[in-house]
């Protein structure tokens, strides 16, 4: 299972770092840093939970086809 962040969608809420502490840490500006691209088996459930929890749907899993699709920005988010 591969995991990735859509950097354009990510707004730095940091929920993923709370749920997937072993895989995701936050940089000095609050944005996610993945320690590796593949999800260890024991973290699979937590990864799915983190994906569901992200307010901007910015966390992508390879089992979710969205990881391989382009994600056009429909509109600018307000600052």
């Amino acid at each position: 299972m591969k995991i990735a962040v859509d950097p354009a969608a990510c707004d730095g809420f940091g929920f993923c770092a709370g749920i997937l502490a072993g895989l995701v840490s936050l940089d000095e500006w609050g944005f996610p840093l993945l320690s590796q691209a593949s999800v260890p088996d024991e973290l699979r459930a937590a990864a799915r939970q983190a994906v569901k929890c992200c307010p901007r749907r910015a966390l992508l899993l390879s089992e979710d086809r969205r990881l391989t699709e382009d994600r056009p920005r429909r509109r600018r988010r307000a600052a």
Partner: peptide, 25 residues
Amino acid sequence: SALVASASGRPGVPAFRPDKSRPLT
């Protein structure tokens, strides 16, 4: 991808493309 976005009336900013082998549309 920013040019393509502009051409389709969306804001002209680059898109996140996890799979660059798929052509832009």
